[in-house]
Simulated scan of single mutants.
Amino acid sequence: MATVISMINLKGGVGKTTLTVAMAEFMAAEYGLKVLVVDLDPQTNATVALINELEWRKRNIRGQTLLNIFLDHLSKYQVFSLEEAIVHNVSNVNGGIEGLDLLPSSIDLIEVHDEFLQAIPSLPINPLHLLDDVLRAALSAYDIVLIDCPPDLGLICQNGLMISDYYIIPTIPDILSTYGIPQIINRIGRLQRENSISIQPLGLVISKYRQQSEIHKNQANLLKIHAPKAGYRQVFNTFIPEGNLAAMVMDYTLHFNSLREKYNYSKYYQIYKALTEEVLSCVQ
């Protein structure tokens, strides 16, 4: 059975999706793991970073994105097929990375969310179990599942948390980016108690770190000191520095022959590899 890790932060722009994509690529390409990325974020950034946008549009039209897991329960018609929806061997590295799969998202998730909330009383299944109901049987085919959660704690995000063993909070070490961390921990704790699930924090990942910034240094130190009592377990030792690499690695139209080429050879390649090793050491 796969180890399922949700990537979550209530604030956008903290590098959550870039981290999800990078770790998935490294886990599959460098460690030979069978990895599934589940894109729960309506912004679809992880999706279009791993597959061609035209391919995504075709799948969206056919109802073969994560949207229809929820939409089928509203329409009462079965359109979604997990076997057809999962895209195999994705990435813009060497024509695709063997063992790296994607369950794509849809921008239409934004529109269906409110409609779905209104329909909850008439649903034949607990709305928190919809993703679990569809995906659970497929988890045995993977070693790791990484869920890119939306920047909220709504119903769709909770579906991802319900099937997760762990969660990681990527954050910039400043006041605004860390402000919502207690809310995340408290809400997940309540979800855990109310539904008897075993999800646990893996830790914080410091992203967009500025070495010369006293604010970043001080805040990162405070996050480390407060980790045990704050409830997020730890701050990973590997910090992801601020830079312009993110825009490039998330652009599927660019093609790379290897992860070393994609992640700027020595610098970012070593950083993401080290972080991946840290995460895997906590779950294996």
Rank of each mutant, 00 (worst) to 15 (best):
L10N: 14
G12C: 06
T17K: 01
T18Q: 07
F26D: 06
M27W: 00
Y31W: 04
K34W: 04
V38C: 01
L40V: 02
P42A: 06
A49P: 14
I51K: 06
I51W: 02
E55N: 11
R62K: 15
H73I: 11
V79R: 10
F80K: 13
L82R: 08
H88Q: 15
V90Q: 08
V93G: 10
N94R: 11
G95V: 04
G96T: 13
G96R: 09
I97M: 01
L100V: 12
L103T: 10
S106T: 11
L109D: 15
I110S: 14
V112R: 01
H113V: 13
D114E: 05
L123K: 13
I125R: 08
D132F: 06
V134C: 11
L135I: 14
I144G: 03
I147G: 00
D152G: 07
L153I: 06
N159F: 02
M162F: 02
M162D: 12
Y167D: 03
Y167R: 04
I172V: 10
I172H: 05
P173C: 05
S177Y: 07
I181W: 05
I185R: 01
I185T: 12
R190V: 15
L191E: 05
Q192I: 10
E194K: 14
E194H: 11
S198K: 07
I206M: 12
S207H: 07
K208S: 08
Q212W: 07
S213D: 06
E214L: 11
L222Q: 15
P228S: 11
P228N: 07
Y232R: 10
Y232E: 14
R233S: 09
V235D: 04
T238Q: 07
P241A: 09
A247P: 09
V249K: 08
M250Y: 01
F256N: 02
F256S: 00
N257Y: 00
L259D: 00
N264Q: 11
N264Y: 02
N264E: 04
Y265W: 07
S266N: 12
Y268V: 05
A274V: 08
E278L: 04
E278Y: 02
C282H: 02
